[in-house]
Simulated scan of single mutants.
Amino acid sequence: MREIVLDTETTGLDPKTGDRIVEIGAVELFNHVATGTTYHQYINPKRDMPHEAFQVHGLSEEFLSDKPVFEQIGQAFLDFVGDSKMIIHNASFDMKFLNAELRWMNLPELPWEQAIDTLAIARKKFPGAQVSLDALCRRYGIDNTARTLHGALLDSEILAEVYLELIGGRQPDFALQVDQGQSGVSAADLNWRPKPRPTPLAGRITAQEQAAHDAFVEKMGENALWRQG
């Protein structure tokens, strides 16, 4: 089962008043496992960036001036998503913008039922609690320290972790075996393996922690396991 965890950044709150998408980020999941395949695109909104939008996204008009307009990337975005379910936090907001952009291009709009709203899931699971992406990261102990500014790809990567927790943990169905006669399961699905990330994740160990580890291994002598290989 293929799913796309998706986030957009925009110049404002409503495409009807001229606001546009300036960034799309998406992460591919297969059977609830990140494959390493992502989609990331900055977009020239063809309008001035309000100051408050610049403060939130860290993007400037100068930075976006040489980026493609949505008309140049719309079909490629649709091809990437395909008919996969889209995992979105506050799906009504992103879908409103995506479908407005697609409509202006005379391209097929994304069906609303194709979106899974993690905000709605969180509100149902934690009634009365804060359910922003940052609040859910705190609840589940997910590291979001890099999220000093909104960025579509980083937010979609964080949302992927939140989504897996919301639906019951990182292995929600513990599907260790698949019935080959199961309807809808193809040979390609059975043989699927995650792809390596095109860009490795940055290490989270600090220089002090590395130094402490090296000193510990040094005391263990030449036959220490960490010295082998």
Rank of each mutant, 00 (worst) to 15 (best):
R2A: 04
D7T: 02
T8Y: 07
T8A: 03
T10N: 01
T10Y: 00
D14W: 03
P15V: 03
K16Q: 12
R20F: 05
V22T: 11
G25A: 13
L29D: 15
F30C: 12
F30S: 08
V33I: 10
A34H: 02
G36H: 03
T37N: 13
T37R: 15
Q41S: 02
K46I: 03
K46S: 12
D48H: 09
M49D: 01
P50L: 00
A53N: 08
A53S: 12
Q55I: 15
H57D: 00
G58C: 08
L59A: 07
E61W: 04
E61G: 10
E61N: 06
L64D: 10
D66S: 13
D66P: 02
K67A: 10
Q72R: 02
A76Y: 05
F80H: 04
K85H: 13
I88S: 03
N90S: 04
S92V: 05
S92T: 06
S92F: 08
F93I: 14
D94E: 08
K96L: 06
F97N: 04
L98H: 05
N99F: 14
A100T: 11
L102S: 02
L102G: 02
N106L: 13
L107Q: 12
L107T: 04
P111W: 08
P111D: 06
I116K: 13
T118A: 11
A120D: 07
R123G: 01
K125V: 02
F126I: 08
P127S: 11
L133I: 14
D134E: 14
C137S: 05
R138K: 15
Y140N: 08
Y140R: 12
Y140I: 14
I142P: 06
I142Q: 02
A146E: 15
A146C: 10
H150L: 07
D155V: 11
L159E: 10
Y163E: 05
Y163N: 04
L164P: 06
L166Y: 00
L166A: 00
L166Q: 00
I167A: 00
G168D: 10
Q171D: 15
P172S: 13
D173M: 13
F174T: 15
F174V: 05
A175G: 01
Q177L: 13
Q182Y: 01
V185E: 11
V185R: 10
D189M: 07
L190K: 07
N191P: 01
N191L: 07
W192P: 03
R193V: 11
P194L: 14
R197V: 09
T199M: 00
T199S: 00
T199G: 00
L201Q: 09
A202C: 02
A202H: 00
I205H: 01
A207R: 14
A207D: 14
A207I: 10
E209C: 03
E209N: 01
Q210T: 01
F216S: 13
F216T: 06
V217Q: 01
V217P: 00
V217R: 04
M220A: 13
N223D: 14
L225R: 10
W226L: 12
R227D: 06
G229E: 13
